[in-house]
Design a protein around this nucleic acid. Structure first.
Length: 106
DNA sequence: CGAATGACCAAGC
DNA sequence: GGCTTGGCCATTC
């Protein structure tokens, strides 16, 4: 392909696609692992405009809060998808930080 | 191609 | 504790 293989976008795809069911990751974490520790916003853009083949519902913010602009219908469906995957949700629309999957850094 | 937007994060007041 | 600012860069108009 014409694109460089180590694109920020491509890395995000691989990471999000690699999130196991029952776990969630944060935008900042994904961005950092993609090579841009401050590009958490782009993860959100990719999530919105990017491919829908990836489990974006397993992606939450640093507070464990769900995305308010979830393409499927908002936090309602987002939370529902998480619970369906086996993720523990504390409040109506928040996930425990302890349930977040942290990648093997260092 | 340029400007605007944005599903975030961290620091400052 | 909540609002404001700066930063990142892909997607859209």
């Amino acid at each position: 392909m014409d694109q460089p293989e180590s694109s920020f976008r491509d890395n995000v795809y691989a990471i999000v696609a690699g999130i196991p069911a029952g776990k969630v990751m944060t935008y900042g974490q994904i961005a950092a692992l993609s090579g841009h520790p401050r590009a958490a916003r782009q993860v959100g853009q990719i999530a919105h405009f990017g491919p829908s083949d990836l489990p974006w519902w397993r992606v939450v913010n640093k507070q464990g809060g769900l995305a308010g602009a979830y393409t499927n219908g908002g936090r309602t469906e987002h939370k529902r998808a998480l619970v369906a995957d086996g993720v523990v949700v504390d409040d109506e629309y928040k996930v425990k930080v302890g349930e977040i999957l942290w990648w093997p850094v260092e």
